[in-house]
Design a protein around this nucleic acid. Structure first.
Length: 420
DNA sequence: TCTGGGGTCCTAGGACCC
DNA sequence: TCTGGGGTCCTAGGACCC
């Protein structure tokens, strides 16, 4: 059996922990740049505010209902997430940290425990130690554990905990679940299935496997099997190294000049290099993209990217930034107001088996030492304390964060973690 | 005025190999 | 009338997740 522990309305709950007066109040968290809604307390959901809705569209509802609005504070959420998973790790032999607010637990070996009692106790402990309310679902497959969590959360009588442990419960719980709520069935498939008369998860589970395979690839087939109790995925308790790393941001304001965009790209390139070093990897391909604001139909639009194959795989901020600037220079055009840029590194391999180049002139050992010192300084004194000169000190490309809460639990406004 | 930031996997089709 | 059979690798695009 698997259990899934899912933090309720996670970011909103984090803000509440340090501001208990908000306990029964509507609380909402905005994306970077205070752009759109990414977390809602139950009270906000009841107001009809949707996930992903742009903030300016709901200004009136916010004011009329005294909704408490926060800019996203990932330093806080990352740290709180770590506290929750630490407790799970204490109580459970094997956990998989699936996302910032969800973890799977392997319950094999729990034959002499009542899993329901175990889950209830775990839920109580997490809340008492961290202040974060969680829902827990238990099932014979990960997909059914997800289904169970939905029932724990949405049906008040279940009090946050639900178990699916026999055929009758599978059928019963799938009949109550809209097919679009199933893990692995998103908007497109949901619409397609509805059009074909499939409304609930149970309808889907009973469709012919051939039909599912034809229209939804092997992924759909796996989901269907899991819904019927046949596991197709195991707990993954080692975090695999990333195959691609992306750092991108929308700017606080639109930028017409190369100078500011270039500073931002330096920052993004350095961030990618840092993330590579943290997972002990190097990358050999780099892509830079820039784009204007697609929502401003009244302004001229431009979006380009450029890919560069680097001669030797690297994780040096200096080297990666060098190529990032080359790529940027190749695609930047005057006459546009840029809203967003990003740097992607890929073709990632472990750092200890790099293929050397015959005519390599980069002093790699020096870079390595320098990066190590830079990382130590920045981890101790805060991000960007030591930076590449071309990053500069412009604040014009920085995020808009007008409603940021204090970083209650961390010294710096960043929380370093690879999986997240 | 104003619209996020990360990731993964699968498939089809084309180029190329013998 | 009729035109082989078997592979690999790469890329773009589309789906999904949080």
């Amino acid at each position: 059996m698997f259990a899934l522990v899912d933090c309720n309305n996670f970011y909103a709950s984090c803000e509440r922990v340090f501001n208990p007066a908000l306990r029964d109040k509507p609380v909402l968290v905005l994306s970077n740049n205070d752009g759109c809604v990414i977390a809602r307390s139950n009270e906000v959901k009841a107001l009809g505010i949707k996930m992903g809705q742009p903030a300016f569209e709901i200004k009136d509802i916010i004011e009329r209902n005294h909704v408490h609005v926060f800019s996203s504070n990932f330093a806080l959420y990352g740290d709180m997430s770590g506290r929750v998973t630490n407790i799970l790790a204490e109580e459970c032999p094997a956990i998989e940290v699936y996302s910032i607010d969800e973890s799977f637990i392997d319950l094999s070996g729990f034959d002499y425990y009542d899993p329901l009692v175990f889950a209830r106790n775990l839920r109580t402990k997490v809340f008492r130690y961290t202040g974060i309310p969680v829902s827990i679902g238990i099932g014979p497959t990960k997909t059914l554990a997800k289904v169970a969590t939905w029932h724990g959360k949405k049906i008040a009588a279940n009090n946050g905990v639900y178990i699916i442990n026999n055929k009758e419960k599978i059928e019963e719980s799938l009949k109550r679940l809209p097919v679009g709520e199933v893990w692995g069935i998103g908007r497109q498939y949901s619409r397609f299935l509805n059009e074909n008369g499939v409304a609930t998860a149970w309808d889907f589970a009973r469709m012919p496997a051939i039909w599912v395979r034809k229209h939804m690839t092997v992924m759909g087939l796996r989901t269907q099997k899991e819904l019927l109790g046949e596991p197709c995925g195991d707990l993954e308790n080692v975090i695999p190294a990333k195959k691609a790393i992306l750092t991108s941001r929308s700017f606080g304001e639109m930028l017409p000049d190369l100078g500011n965009v270039s500073q931002a790209v330096t920052r993004f390139a350095s961030s990618c290099a840092y993330k590579l070093r943290k997972q002990k990897s190097v990358a050999s391909v780099l892509m830079v993209f820039i784009t204007t604001n697609p929502h401003r139909k009244d302004l001229p639009q431009y979006a380009r990217n450029r890919v560069i194959q680097m001669p030797v795989p690297t994780n040096s901020s200096i080297e990666i930034n060098h190529y990032a600037q080359l790529a940027l220079a190749g695609i930047f055009r005057e006459g546009y107001r840029y809203k967003k840029a990003g740097v992607l590194v890929s073709d990632i391999t472990p750092q200890d088996n790099v293929q050397q180049a015959l005519f390599d002139e980069v002093p790699r050992e020096k870079h390595k030492d320098l990066m190590m010192v830079m990382d130590r300084i920045n981890e101790k004194y805060g991000r960007d304390t030591m930076r590449i000169g071309s990053q500069g000190f412009s604040k014009r490309w920085k995020l808009r964060q007008e409603k940021l809460s204090p970083c209650y639990t961390t010294r710096w406004d960043e929380f370093i973690t690879i999986k997240l």
